[in-house]
Amino acid sequence: MSVSHLATHLDLHMVGPENVAPCNTPTWELRVRKGVAVSEELGGRMLLHFLTLQNLGAFREGTQREIFTTPTPYPEEEVIRSLELPGVAYARKHVLVLDPLMLDDIAGPRHVAWGNGFEYILPGGFTAAAIASKWEVELW
């Protein structure tokens, strides 16, 4: 078992597998909750949004576009496979750490189709105040 698979399994156990929607659930059918509820569900853990080098700096002021996050940290060599991210040619060497307490609407969680992780979706994006790390964190 890979470390990433174990981390995902432990996170699913914490959230409760029965609370994670199937991968084929459309975003608009996921339950939407306030960040306080998700923070409690995650035991105070943060949400992570993995970035390509091309996206560095793009979200420092927040964004209003839909953003996909996960509570599970993955190493660079496993993040694309675990979360089935688009643009497989672009490594994810950085992550934004987002504080659920500073987020309004969070949809999910939902299993990732074709991956082994699970995700929370921020339908309206996030504000700069939600960035707990203040800027991107390099993974190594």
Score class of each variant (00 low, 15 high):
residue 35 G to R: 01
residue 35 G to Q: 02
residue 35 G to H: 01
residue 36 V to A: 13
residue 36 V to R: 15
residue 37 A to N: 06
residue 37 A to V: 08
residue 38 V to S: 04
residue 39 S to V: 06
residue 41 E to N: 04
residue 41 E to R: 08
residue 44 G to I: 10
residue 46 M to A: 09
residue 46 M to L: 07
residue 48 L to A: 02
residue 53 L to H: 15
residue 55 N to I: 09
residue 55 N to A: 15
residue 56 L to Y: 08
residue 60 R to V: 05
residue 61 E to R: 14
residue 62 G to F: 13
residue 62 G to W: 10
residue 63 T to L: 06
residue 65 R to E: 15
residue 68 F to T: 08
residue 70 T to K: 00
residue 71 P to C: 07
residue 71 P to V: 09
residue 73 P to Y: 07
residue 74 Y to E: 05
residue 74 Y to M: 09
residue 74 Y to T: 09
residue 76 E to Q: 14
residue 76 E to M: 13
residue 76 E to I: 13
residue 78 E to A: 11
residue 78 E to Q: 13
residue 79 V to Y: 10
residue 79 V to L: 09
residue 81 R to M: 12
residue 86 P to C: 14
residue 86 P to Q: 13
residue 88 V to P: 15
residue 88 V to A: 14
residue 90 Y to D: 07
residue 90 Y to A: 07
residue 92 R to Y: 10
residue 94 H to R: 09
residue 96 L to W: 00
residue 97 V to A: 00
residue 98 L to Y: 00
residue 99 D to N: 09
residue 103 L to F: 00
residue 103 L to K: 01
residue 106 I to W: 01
residue 106 I to N: 01
residue 108 G to K: 04
residue 112 V to I: 10
residue 115 G to I: 04
residue 117 G to N: 03
residue 120 Y to H: 08
residue 122 L to C: 02
residue 124 G to N: 14
residue 128 A to G: 10
residue 130 A to S: 10
residue 130 A to C: 03
residue 131 I to G: 01
residue 131 I to N: 02
residue 131 I to V: 12
residue 132 A to I: 06
